[in-house]
Amino acid sequence: MKITQFIQRLFGFRKQKLSSEGASANPSEKMRKMMAMLSNTQDVELTCDEVFALLDQFTELAAQDEDVAQLMPLVQQHLDMCDDCREEYKVLQSILQGAV
């Protein structure tokens, strides 16, 4: 793949599909996503495994209305960055809210 194809793929620059693919082909949307990722990038970040080890504690604190972003900022930052871990957090949160 050529350089230009790479950027077309990354940012969805496909002339004929700009209007038909919605957000997935919107270069502004993808650029926003990438720049948001860069903006939130920290020198030190927890990995998925490290966050997994703390996720039960984090979720319980959040369920108790504790300020988890203040108490566990590195976990919060990872959840802001990582779709997979955030999805798992949301499900765990819903389980606790359902008080099963």
Binding site: F52, E88, V91, L92, I95
Partner: peptide
């Protein structure tokens, strides 16, 4: 042996189940 008691045991177990379920669904 890795459960350190920082949450309810059942929350810890749910966490493991959620990871297993979402991994398979993905």
């Amino acid at each position: 042996d890795t459960f350190e008691g920082r949450s309810q045991f059942t929350t810890w177990a749910h966490k493991i189940a959620v990871r297993a379920a979402l991994t398979e669904l993905r």
